[in-house]
Design a protein around this nucleic acid. Structure first.
Lengths: 360, 360
DNA sequence: GATCATGATGTAAACGTTTACATCGCTTCG
DNA sequence: CGAAGCGATGTAAACGTTTACATCATGATC
């Protein structure tokens, strides 16, 4: 008992037809109350559980949404999935996750294998270009892209305001009195990294500091940040601030500078991007740009559900989520407009750039 | 085109029967090579993608495993899912996640909704007692429990060696010369917390230090650790070491002690449990017990697959995963047997307790 | 009392696959 | 030449649901 109990079995036990069982289970209207409870009782007693595969086949609804992710490592994806799950759960949707697609072939296989298992797809993948999607996704399957290069796809796209965040952070550093601001870049070709670099460059340009720009190569890893930190000593004059394209590199850099006995932020300021949990616990606490990752996930799912309910209805297909500068102590004394009060180490002040996203 | 293309359509286009299409697609043996390629070409051209719901219905295989988790917050579940995903991917299995089951009813609903969608289940839930499982799971569905109170269920169970880890850490502290060792406990009734407490108590007992035991209440949160750290000043004589039941509390405690200008580890040692990523970045780097979370996930999945392939075959149904003490600097000078060399801040020495799990 | 609307229930088709079995044509061998 | 064997292919049933439609009893209406 348990497995293998079908509507048929329940029908026989209750002395009715399968149709009645189905109706009772799905709470249809035209039923004698007496029959309904009898059927329900039988189902309960027999530990009947509907087979969702069969149900999906006929209703063409799986109540499941799929997520295609490049990786599952680290706080970023953890948060992203959490945001998605939260929103999905609220709507009674299941979550099918697929990750670690090293190459386009794997990504394609992942896309195809979702066929018939999901009602919609949330996609974040470096390989998710329009042609791959076209070839491996039925036209009728709703999907939302996350963090892709926006605008070029027929799918709605959500992304982080990397440019705006980096611009704001650069301005903040300038407002703190820093002039020779170096940047540690992300891996070549990485879209997020490139946008952050652009924000940094424009921030300097707006202040007439283009000639001060110094860019170190980086790979988004702690090690590459550490290397950049050592590299930095070759510069004369030495920069008075370093802006890393993500927090892990900022932390690596921080350690490299401390190994050479530089005081942070007195001798040199260090700031990052992402606001991973670790950021507030290092010494000194890291000033950074907060990205509301869970919000990205939640928004993407919300957008997807809209698409599922009314395909192609929503006009604005592309959306950019705001970031915010989080001032802690690693950026030094602040005299800029953002500096409302001395910020606590452990309970940082969040400075909204645009409209802040809702808190999780 | 794309969606709605069925075997029937492909069959018509290729001028064969649906059976042949199915055979071609699934690579069966008895087929004329010429027919096969013609069918495959047609399928490709029409962008045919099999409907997995229909396939599952007839084959009774979903190639999907479900995970029931209490929550998705934080590094712990991120790592757990990663470990599971890694192992699942290697076997071509999909992952259906379900989380945040506040009460038994939600957990029950989650279990039932997995019916017909998964080939097996990985369950970690405080509500997953035998009777709930019995009522909501078909007898034939393989499942593996993670971190539950072992032994009382008919399902295989995997858990962390909380007791052994805490015991080893307590011994390590004693070996470092500490005597008045306080403990910050987990939330009341939490199984992991209770086991860690027991390990601490036995560790003291073995050294004849039972009279020195001091236990503070905690909730596994940074705040509760902070509170315990303040509480600690009331003790006379003051403890010379604090062992928190998890890292977040250890960190909260660390900050509380520093706020009162105690030097760590000179004035007082602080150690934790879990080895979350933050642990190595705080100042001073935290000595802690490493739990191989991803390994837990991977092992659980491996065990589940074994169960799926040969139900009830494996004799040993319960398994405990080892932990290891990670010596950094927050525990002070070590003269114990574990101390092979002065450990680096950022590249800690791992000290195996039993047999260390494989590295990810 | 015949007609009709109404509400409860049953019958059977449909969803898109896989696969056991039947069929057919060919080769091979006696 | 006919039987047997075999390989390629087609036919149809099965998986467990949902649901359009048919049926049937009941009571109301004229």
């Amino acid at each position: 008992m348990g497995a293998g109990v079908t509507v048929k079995d329940v029908a026989k036990a209750a002395g009715v037809s399968v149709a009645s069982v189905s109706r009772a289970l799905n709470g249809h209207k035209n039923m004698a109350e007496e029959t309904r409870v009898r059927i329900l009782k039988c189902a309960e007693r027999m530990r009947y559980m509907p087979n969702d595969a069969a149900r999906s086949l006929i209703t063409r609804r799986t109540h499941t949404i799929g997520t295609i992710l490049p990786d599952l490592h680290g706080e970023f994806f953890s948060e992203l999935i959490r945001g998605i799950d939260l929103a999905a759960r609220a709507r009674g949707l299941h979550l099918l996750v697929s990750s670690s697609h090293g190459d386009a072939g794997e990504a394609a296989a992942a896309l195809r294998s979702m066929q018939g298992r999901v009602d919609g797809l949330l996609i974040m993948s470096p390989h998710a270009d329009p042609v791959l999607l076209r070839a491996n996704l039925p036209d009728s399957l709703p999907a939302v892209l996350m963090n892709a290069s926006a605008g070029q796809s027929r799918y709605p796209t959500l992304s982080i305001d990397n440019y705006g965040g980096a611009l704001a952070m650069t301005r903040h550093l300038i407002a703190c009195g820093h002039r020779r601001i170096a940047f540690i870049a992300g891996p070549a070709g990485n879209l997020d990294g490139d946008e952050r670099l652009r924000g940094y460059q424009d921030g300097l340009a707006h202040a007439g500091l283009t000639h001060e720009a110094t860019v170190f190569a980086g790979e988004f890893t702690e090690e590459s940040g550490h290397a950049a930190g050592q590299e930095l000593f070759r510069c004369t004059p030495r920069p008075d601030a370093v802006f890393a394209a993500n927090d892990m590199m900022a932390i690596g850099c921080l350690f490299a500078l401390r190994e050479r006995d530089l005081a942070i932020p007195t001798d040199i300021a260090v700031v990052g991007f992402d606001d991973i949990p670790i950021a507030r616990y290092v010494t000194p606490p890291l000033t950074t740009v907060r990205v509301r990752i869970a919000d990205l996930g939640r928004s993407a799912l919300t957008r997807l559900v809209a698409e599922m309910e009314a395909p192609g209805a929503s006009p604005e297909s592309s959306q950019v989520l705001p970031c915010e500068v989080v001032v802690r102590t690693s950026c030094g004394q602040c005299f800029g407009p953002h500096n409302r009060s001395k910020s606590s180490n452990r309970f940082p002040i969040a400075v909204p750039i645009n409209m802040p996203g809702r808190e999780t």
